[in-house]
Amino acid sequence: MSRRGENIRKRKDGRWEGRYSAYEPQSQKNVVHSIYAKSYSEVKEKLSAAKMDTQYMSKIRKCAGDVPFYLVADKWLATVKSTKKHATFIKYRFIYQKHIKEKMENLVLAKLNEDILSQIFQNENNEVLSDSVQKSISCVMNQILSYAASNYHTEKIRYSNQRQKTGNKPVEIFSQTEQTRLLHHLYDGMDVFKLGIVICISTGLRLGEICALKWQDIDLERKMLHVNSTVQRITMDGKETRTVLLEGEPKSVYSKREIPLSDELVKLIFPYYKNAGKYVLHNNKPLDPRTYQNKFRKYLLATDIGHKNFHSLRHTFATNYINSGADIKSLSEILGHSDVKITLNRYVHPTIETKRQHMNSLAAIYGQYLGHELP
């Protein structure tokens, strides 16, 4: 039986139980909590402390509700700047300033909920945003909201992007005919720049990775290539030029990887390995990716191949790798992906020849069922 007004009672198992209610942000309701102790005095002391904590958090939450959203976002960006890669900070800041700041700057934390957020981002003047940008907006918004919940003790809410997806653009790969023409052009009058393109279509390196590749990253004896860095042109505060070329670690921890080299590629690299500078493509400094993209376009122009993005080399490598009969897990590790689902969904593009081969194999199986070979 509980003692009057205290919400404390002795249970049948001999323990004392005290109950109190506290606001739960997830359910947005007051929820009853229980505290247990071996004696009445002990549970009373614990219950009193829990109630004081609940009252304190309620006051904090009420005060925090008046904090402007932009102030929380600024503090979150400062944290990102000090803990993440500079390129990540630049990307997040760009997304916030271009797609979030103006819509949220007059709101305070207390006024936010999931319905309001949906209404705010639903009206974007018929602006068509790619799936990638929409995903980035959701990522930044939810990180800011999570920061607010953790540091200002506000209700934890999430922004769910309900906009119509535009659909990912189909990724182009080089056809067999285009690969033949391109490789003939690269092998004819081979130089270090043409070699770099062959390395990319043979290993799946990204543009920034080949531009930052050093000779010390290539072990011809072990026939191994190590991806240890990448280079990209990004905005840098306080610099005279609008952007600077920045060399850093690869895209993710999984991007830092080892890639086996074929015997043919080792033979091709060997003549350039001796007496080489620091970087494969540009002696003592990484090559600007824009410069290499321009060279790549010239190679395509010389072979009468239509416009293709440099990244098509990576997709072509992945397609050829799978079509050769290799397993998806090996490909995923070579490409530096964190999950094989990324590899399957974005980088595996079976050719019509491969599909036809599988259809013929299926027909052969049906022929065996019938007891004869189909014509």
Rank of each mutant, 00 (worst) to 15 (best):
T88S: 12
V108L: 10
I100L: 04
G196H: 11
F89V: 00
S132H: 12
S175P: 11
E155T: 12
K156V: 01
A87H: 06
S175N: 10
L183F: 07
T88C: 09
H99G: 07
K101T: 05
L186I: 09
N113K: 04
L182C: 03
R163L: 00
K103F: 01
Q122D: 05
M104V: 05
Q179P: 03
D191G: 07
R181C: 05
N126M: 11
K85F: 10
F89I: 01
I173E: 03
E178H: 03
V108F: 14
L183I: 15
I100R: 05
K91W: 06
T88H: 08
G167E: 09
Y152F: 11
F193I: 08
R163C: 00
K91S: 12
F193E: 10
E105T: 02
T154E: 05
I90A: 11
E102V: 06
C139L: 15
N151M: 15
S146R: 05
H86I: 10
L107M: 09
L129D: 00
L129R: 10
I144M: 14
K165M: 02
H185V: 04
S118G: 11
Y96I: 00
T88F: 05
G189M: 14
K194P: 08
I100T: 07
H99L: 13
K111L: 09
Y152H: 14
Q164A: 14
E127H: 06
N161R: 03
V128C: 11
V128G: 00
N126Q: 12
A149V: 12
N113F: 09
K194I: 08
Y159M: 15
S150E: 06
S146N: 15
H153N: 05
Q176Y: 09
K101D: 09
Q122T: 07
V128I: 15
H86M: 05
Y187D: 12
L186M: 14
K135V: 00
S136C: 14
S118F: 13
Y92W: 02
S146T: 08
Q179K: 11
K194W: 08
Q97M: 11
D191F: 03
S138H: 08
